[in-house]
């Protein structure tokens, strides 16, 4: 779609949607500045929880661990999920295709407890038989997350591939472009929004997963949700609110800077084109 202008109804949908999404976020940001330990009782302004957060080594290392695993799982899931989507949508009929499609959607269906348990048992069996993985930790969590995230990516990417005009690719091929060349120059740019969407979904899924990670983690590989969950027994600590606030701020800053930079580049380019015209 092009800039047809965004109507009144669309604006309303957008604004009310964002209000729904952000009300809880603003509330938890607000309470990160609460003096009291009780998250829901306001007792005055304070930034002491931010200090406490940085002193909490366990939580800080869990944050890094989670971000690292989420980044690597999302990237791997996008690679594997995209391959799977191409095979599903593009390869016509091939032997074992039904099983292939079933297999890709199945991880979505499995309840987390069972996925976690089954992978745990697999890793235990493998380590007894082959000596690998000698110890469970970030690698096993990464494998588990990649496996269920690639299902999400495959669904998103295949939905885009299904409706995409193949004449472009064929035209390029007729003009003598190689298969790989066509893929990188034409197919990839067209599915790029789906890849981005899939990566973002996979990243959040991995970042949020508690149950599967609890099963397949080992000593010293505690992820953020595990720390959060084990501490909510005593009520959500405002430290966690502070952490959420920082995460949201950091990501929104990074996004905004990237957006601003790209926007500027675009404006410069437009200006150049315009001045070229004027000459």
């Amino acid at each position: 779609m092009t800039n047809a202008g965004i109507g009144r109804w669309s604006w309303m949908a957008l604004v009310s949607g964002f209000i729904f999404l952000y009300v809880p976020i603003f509330i938890l940001m607000f309470y990160s500045f609460n003096e009291s330990r009780l998250v829901t009782v306001w007792a005055g302004f304070s930034i002491k929880w931010y200090g406490e957060l940085f002193r909490d080594e366990q939580m800080m290392s869990a944050v890094w661990m989670s971000l690292k695993i989420a980044f690597l799982s999302a990237s791997m899931a996008v690679v594997l999920g995209t391959m799977a989507a191409i095979a599903m949508v593009r390869f016509g009929r091939f032997r074992g295709k039904t099983m292939f499609t079933g297999m890709i959607t199945a991880p979505l269906v499995m309840p987390e407890v069972i996925t976690g348990l089954s992978l745990l048992l697999l890793f235990v069996t493998l380590s007894q038989a082959l000596g690998w993985p000698a110890e469970r930790g970030s690698v096993t969590i990464w494998i588990a997350h990649t496996t269920f995230c690639m299902a999400y990516v495959a669904v998103v990417v295949s939905s885009r591939l299904r409706e995409f005009d193949r004449s472009l690719e064929e035209a390029a091929m007729d003009l003598g472009a190689s298969r790989l060349g066509v893929f990188f120059r034409i197919t990839l740019p067209i599915v790029a929004p789906a890849l981005l969407a899939g990566w973002l979904l996979a990243f959040t899924l991995s970042l949020d997963d508690l149950v599967i990670a609890s099963f397949v983690s080992g000593p010293g590989s505690t992820t953020l949700p595990m720390v959060v969950f084990s501490s909510v027994r005593l009520g959500v600590s405002p430290k966690i609110n502070a952490l959420a606030t920082l995460l949201v701020l950091a990501v929104s800053m990074a996004t905004f800077i990237a957006w601003w930079y790209m926007r500027r580049q675009e404006l410069i380019r437009q200006k150049e084109i315009q001045s070229a015209f004027n000459k």
Binding site: L120, V124, S214, G220, V227, S230
Partner: peptide, 19 residues
């Protein structure tokens, strides 16, 4: 490392090789 319920601990112990 910390946990919050006997459940996950037990599942890990019964599967073996907790580390």
């Amino acid at each position: 490392d910390v946990f919050d319920s006997n459940d996950v601990l037990e599942a890990k112990l019964l599967s073996g090789k907790t580390g």
